[in-house]
Nucleic acid binder design. Sequence first.
DNA 1: CAATAGGTTTAGCCAATGCTAAACTTGTGC
DNA 2: GCACAAGTTTAGCATTGGCTAAACCTATTG
Lengths: 144, 144
Amino acid sequence: MPQRAKRPGTAKIRSAAFRRIRADHSSELAEDYVELIADLIDEKGEARGSEVAMRLGVANATVVKTMKRLQDMGLVTQEPYRSIFLTGDGWKMAEDGRRKHKIVEAFLLALGISEETARIDSEGIEHHVSEETLRAMARFLARK
Amino acid sequence: MPQRAKRPGTAKIRSAAFRRIRADHSSELAEDYVELIADLIDEKGEARGSEVAMRLGVANATVVKTMKRLQDMGLVTQEPYRSIFLTGDGWKMAEDGRRKHKIVEAFLLALGISEETARIDSEGIEHHVSEETLRAMARFLARK
DNA sequence: CAATAGGTTTAGCCAATGCTAAACTTGTGC
DNA sequence: GCACAAGTTTAGCATTGGCTAAACCTATTG
Ligand SMILES: [Mn+2]
Ligand SMILES: [Mn+2]
Ligand SMILES: [Mn+2]
Ligand SMILES: [Mn+2]
């Protein structure tokens, strides 16, 4: 139907935000995994798949499957029945995740939010803040 | 292997945040769809599937499939080849989404973030802020 | 040093979200 | 009124990220 004339849209521009979100989501899981693996290595000396599963609240089989993907992405290495190690890229991603996570959580606390809520909300928000927003949060923390 | 003794963990508690995030993600898509449909109805008098697809930056077929799910959830109604309507529940979800979205976006702007970035970041952050955090943001806006 | 408890992986299933290409409607304009 | 361009839906496929149950290793321990 040649009906419904449409002017050249701003729609394409608007869709950028949604595209960004879909991109964020695909990296989000990887970020949480490597950050958690880094924490386990630092805390207990090694990261076992079952411990990752427990902390994330998912089944062991889910972690095994995800590890294969993370290996393909070059973020972790693992031998069957052995614990998990991070590659150089894995450590880099983990460090960057920690950096963002710390800023967001500290910012929420500075805003007067309870520890419990700050911990929970920051776990989700951290993946959707741009560098510009992180800078603004850091600025707020510095001058507050 | 009865190796590696483990003390009764705080892991279960910690996993709550990740469970919340997984829950957030499953409602996130529905929220963005109904909010966008509400906007289209208000702006142009009707919401066409193809317009939704364009604004979200996805294929038409993807919207058709998602609409089926949203219908099953009781959020929208649609006849084949016709435009999309929101149910009472759909409007309620859209209004709630708008409310959160506005607070988050206004908050980011008040923090000194550019319009472009505030628009993009708020599109993702809105789905991961608890009511407590929203209240803190509103408080900041009020007294700032 | 062998049995076995218990951690780990495999197999197979499901739902959600994307996509492209092909088929199908419908509103307009001739 | 009909043809057809353009908008919509269907069909079929792929990936991600969950799950359970069954099979498989391995480190401790008797
Ligand atoms: Mn994190
Ligand atoms: Mn996280
Ligand atoms: Mn929104
Ligand atoms: Mn959104």
